[in-house]
Simulated assay, not measured.
Amino acid sequence: MKHCLIVDDSPVIRKVTRRILEALDFEIEEADDGQQALDSCRRRMPEAVIVDSLMPEMDGFAFVRALRQTPGGGAPKILLLNTEYDVAIMARAIHAGADDVVLKPFDRSQITQKLEGVGLA
Rank of each mutant, 00 (worst) to 15 (best):
G97Y: 08
L67F: 03
L103C: 06
D25E: 13
I50D: 02
L80T: 06
R18H: 12
L81Q: 02
L103I: 13
T112F: 11
L54F: 06
E84S: 15
F61W: 05
P11V: 01
I6D: 00
L5F: 06
L21H: 08
L5I: 02
H95T: 13
I13H: 00
K15G: 10
R18D: 15
L120H: 13
R14M: 04
R68H: 05
I28N: 03
L115K: 06
F106I: 12
K2I: 09
F106D: 03
C41M: 11
F106Q: 04
L115F: 08
L81W: 01
E57D: 13
L67W: 00
V12C: 03
D86S: 15
R19A: 15
I20G: 05
V49W: 01
R19V: 07
A66L: 02
A75C: 08
G97W: 09
L24P: 03
T70Y: 02
R44N: 15
V12M: 12
R108Y: 13
A62K: 10
D39G: 14
P76Y: 01
L21D: 14
G97L: 12
E57Q: 10
A23W: 07
E84G: 11
C4Q: 05
V64R: 00
V64D: 00
P11M: 05
A66S: 11
D25C: 09
D33W: 00
I6P: 00
E57G: 04
K104W: 05
Q36D: 09
R14P: 08
D99K: 11
E30G: 06
E47I: 03
I28E: 06
L54V: 10
K104T: 13
F61A: 12
